[in-house]
């Protein structure tokens, strides 16, 4: 197709959107609503994922030594941890001696009578290990549990399973969202295809004349497709604007609440870093919805 023809067809399609104000507006609004919903869900998912990641980074592996662990056995564990730290697998660790544990328990119980029969000798030394990559946890836990000094009866603790469960729930949530989204997209496509159908009907005489003069099918179809794409894209841009405003407002509100609750780990992400990605996703969705909507209508009603 020649460039001047392309220009002409794009102009025709744009004019259709303007001439068909009311239906174009209605279609644009359904696209806005669909994408707004998509965006909110997407942003919720992104936030949950990033917070889970942050929590994972904060997770510690707790390793208790046996009460009667020898000094040599203790050194074995320490040197293993040190080596792993050297290798960059472990970012940091801290150590709680028997005395510290005894003191901690004593303080938290706040009643010496309950400590009867419990002495420093009965307390166990422990290590709290942070990993560079939480996915390495299984490996580290297996390796560390081989040491004789380590208490293998509930002596090793790690909260990853709980987070994995949370991620599992997130996945199910994602599937449900997908299903709702598909329904919304179908509704949008239907509405756009209806708008285009009206344009096709309004211009049936022109189409007829074009056919008699020998217009190629593509020449007749393209203005309608341009119309659909344009509706999709305008809807996407508008929806992006609304989403960004709504999100930034909500971000401020929720972060303030989280700060008040002293939940420092949990926080709502900034919009800036994901803005471009969201915009691209919106545009693609908008254009696809618009394109499919008009194609359906053109195929069904143009009959050329």
């Amino acid at each position: 197709m020649k460039i001047r023809t392309m220009k002409l067809l794009i102009k025709e399609g744009t004019n259709n959107v303007i001439k068909n104000k009311l239906m174009s507006f209605a279609s644009i609004m359904t696209v806005v609503a669909t994408l707004f919903f998509l965006g909110i869900i997407l942003l919720i998912a992104i936030n949950i994922t990033s917070n889970i990641e942050a929590m994972k980074r904060d997770l510690e592996i707790t390793v208790f030594l046996n009460v009667n662990a020898t000094n040599y056995q203790r050194e074995e564990v320490v040197s293993f941890i040190e080596a792993k730290k050297e290798a960059g697998v472990i970012t940091e660790y801290r150590n709680e001696t028997k005395e510290q544990m005894y003191q901690n328990i004593k303080e938290s119980l706040n009643d010496d009578s309950l400590l009867e029969g419990f002495s420093v000798d009965n307390a166990a030394e422990s290590f709290y290990i942070k990993l560079a990559d939480p996915n390495n946890s299984d490996e580290i836990i297996t390796e560390i549990s081989r040491f004789e000094g380590v208490n293998n009866n509930n002596g090793i603790g790690y909260g990853k399973e709980e987070l994995d469960k949370l991620e599992g729930i997130l996945k199910v949530f994602n599937y449900i969202v997908m299903a709702v989204l598909v329904v919304l997209m179908i509704v949008s496509i239907f509405l756009i295809s209806n708008t285009i159908r009206l344009t096709v009907f309004a211009r049936r005489h022109q189409i007829e004349i074009m056919k008699y003069v020998g217009a190629l099918d593509s020449f007749i179809r393209w203005p309608f497709i341009v119309e659909g794409l344009l509706i999709g894209f305008i809807g996407a841009a508008l929806s992006f604007f609304i989403t960004s405003q709504a999100y930034q407002w909500l971000q401020g509100v929720i972060n303030a609440i989280l700060a008040n609750l002293k939940l420092s780990t949990l926080r709502i992400m900034e919009f800036g870093p994901v803005a471009f990605r969201i915009f691209i996703i919106y545009s693609i969705f908008g254009i696809v919805i618009g394109g499919i909507g008009s194609l359906l209508s053109v195929r069904k009603h143009l009959n050329v």
Binding site: H205, Q206, E208, I209, K211, Y212, V213, G214, A215, L216, D217
Partner: peptide
């Protein structure tokens, strides 16, 4: 078909102008 029609000029009773 479009190419056949380009070799034809068509005039209608009801004009069919835009």
């Amino acid at each position: 078909v479009p190419y056949l029609r380009r070799s034809l000029g068509v005039v209608f009773q009801d004009f069919r102008l835009l």
